[in-house]
Design a protein around this nucleic acid. Structure first.
Lengths: 205, 205
DNA sequence: GTCTATATTCAGATAGAC
DNA sequence: GTCTATCTGAATATAGAC
């Protein structure tokens, strides 16, 4: 019906606004008024659609976490050549974050400060599959002699670190290296290649 | 005089408490009441010593930033063998963070959310010296043929990423790899060696 | 310098008209 | 469903006694 579409439209406006504000300011920093302004409505309507601030936040938070990780896992689970897999995952992961630069800090922050928001469950479902597959890959390559006997856990952490951290530390990096916005962006584009080759150089036999 | 020491004692109690609370909860999340409780005094006294919450926060924040970076720079500026320098800096940097695990997220957070708090000036003084020296080192090694022609900027970012990020992402890592507190701690101890060798393997000729 | 009590401000949440 | 107006609670900040 007509009402249905209007409903969805308003709800969507709220979700869009909440996403933007929460991701920038976090749970504590965000104001319901900010979200209402951003959505072009008033506070009362926010509470009409989502009873409390926490409820609204949890919706955005889970959606956000769900957006980041599946792509990571999809590539890890594919069956392409191991080095290409590394190139793919690094490149596409950095690409995602380039277009959502505030997401990582947002997720890390809220996972540290609000461990209760049910993310734990979210991870525990898919985790074992991915990690297991990644370890299998590495063992296969080791026995083929294409790579050294590296620790899968450390390799995974190194990869994640080099992809994600620069965005989290953007202000520090820009000051230390004296970069402006465009130069930072260019550096991140370079990293799609640089990081992958850095890893491959380190582990290849 | 006796008064002087009493003053200093109370002020120090406040600073200790503020450090603890701010580092755990950030500027927004921290409550003056929390700090007062932690210090064993009442709110009014906080405002007597430091007029506002922001003033108190800025004090802690600058102190914190100042605590993290000098060690980084001291080693970079020393004149030991390049590979040993990498081993030293990785190891001692991870060591610092092991004993102050909340500092990185705190600093990164507040630099992203409150760029005004005068850190910019803090960095701009020392930055050029360190970066310049680090680039010199790399060029020297490249011309000696001991390492490949790598980008100093990317190398520096990679090093920082692999040292710092795991602590920021601790909840994620613990879930993904199914670690408990002790296992995480052990993994970080391992990383003092692992990360340095990972880097050296990648860049050595 | 340190406290208790209070003022002020602000954000989340609700009531009720339309 | 959407708005205006209002309540309630919490947190920063101040006044004033000791």
């Amino acid at each position: 019906m007509v009402n249905k579409e209007k409903d969805k439209s308003t709800e969507e406006k709220i979700l869009d606004a909440a996403r933007k504000v929460f991701v920038q300011k976090g749970l504590d920093g965000a104001r319901m008024q900010d979200i209402a302004d951003e959505a072009g409505i008033n506070k009362a309507l926010l509470h009409y659609y989502f009873r409390t601030k926490d409820k609204l936040f949890e919706m955005i938070f889970l959606e956000t976490v769900g957006k980041i990780f599946p792509r990571f896992e999809m590539i890890l689970l594919s069956d392409m050549d191991f080095f290409d897999k590394i190139r793919q995952i690094v490149s596409s992961y950095i690409e995602v974050i380039i277009h959502n630069p505030y997401l990582p800090l947002f997720v890390l922050n809220e996972m540290n400060k609000n461990p209760e928001f049910g993310i734990v469950d979210f991870f525990k479902v898919q985790r074992p599959v991915v990690i297991h597959r990644f370890m299998e890959d590495i063992e296969k390559e080791v026995s083929k002699g294409t790579i050294k006997a590296v620790s899968p856990a450390h390799l995974l952490v190194n990869m994640m670190s080099m992809c994600i951290f620069p965005f989290v530390a953007k202000p520090v990096i820009n000051i230390m290296l004296d970069l402006d916005e465009l130069q930072f962006r260019n550096m991140m584009e370079q990293r799609k290649r640089v990081v992958a080759e850095f890893i491959i150089e380190s582990i290849k036999n």
